[in-house]
Design a binder for these strands. Sequence first.
DNA 1: AGAATACATCAAGAATGATTGATGTATCAA
DNA 2: TTGATACATCAATCATTCTTGATGTATTCT
Lengths: 127, 127
Amino acid sequence: MYQSLLIVVAILVKLQHCSWTDELMSTGVANEKAIDSLKALAEPIRLEIIEALSNGEKCVCDLMQETGLAQSKISFHLKVLKEAGVITDRQSGRWVYYQLDTRTLKSLQNWIKRLRKGCLNEASSCE
Amino acid sequence: MYQSLLIVVAILVKLQHCSWTDELMSTGVANEKAIDSLKALAEPIRLEIIEALSNGEKCVCDLMQETGLAQSKISFHLKVLKEAGVITDRQSGRWVYYQLDTRTLKSLQNWIKRLRKGCLNEASSCE
DNA sequence: AGAATACATCAAGAATGATTGATGTATCAA
DNA sequence: TTGATACATCAATCATTCTTGATGTATTCT
């Protein structure tokens, strides 16, 4: 009882520290992370934001200017992206700067790499 | 008039043949493709299917057995994945075999690679 | 302190996507 | 030709996600 609680705590600590690490990539937990990231990316406005951030760190006002979108809309999508671990934020005065999280991108890349590895094996025929 | 029609046809042919080619990666057209692929990946059942297919080609009955999901559900998601260009299918007798499309995966990988390239540039301060 | 700027959050409605069970189609075997 | 298998499609319900305009909060300027 006490021991299993310890294990749970250990897992939580681990997840907190290395969200999206590659050693977790083939577990269910990692898949949830993958889904969060993919879902976050899979939306036109968010993809536009991502593309904008691919040139470097930006604040919300920059993004508003670049995209011409309403502020509340951008904030909403930034929140989705942040909670998915796709971007990070940093406050400086009254500005908040957003940046792509390269760790998440790297993990996504590795995940896709793994998918490509064995996917061309032929099916054992069903007949 | 006739010439611009030719160009449109050429583009259509191109899109058909090399959906998701990397030279298109930074255009709006490519982004729509990216969104389709990402959206397709960003769903628990579809991700489960993708993971199953990462070991190689499978027919629907294989997938049903592996996942324990209803047939119509799997067919629905396979269709989404196929229309997004994430998987390809091949019929053999009364079985239909599905496989990951490595070209799409490769393009996704390259896209992420590009995102990672310049995203760490600091913001020009807003003050 | 008061006003302005930069951003976050909220609730209600609109839009999109998924599930379900039934039905349809093509292929094969007896 | 009849029945069985493998899969696709459909329509209705259900669930999730986005948008919009308004309001809230923190920070800076005067």
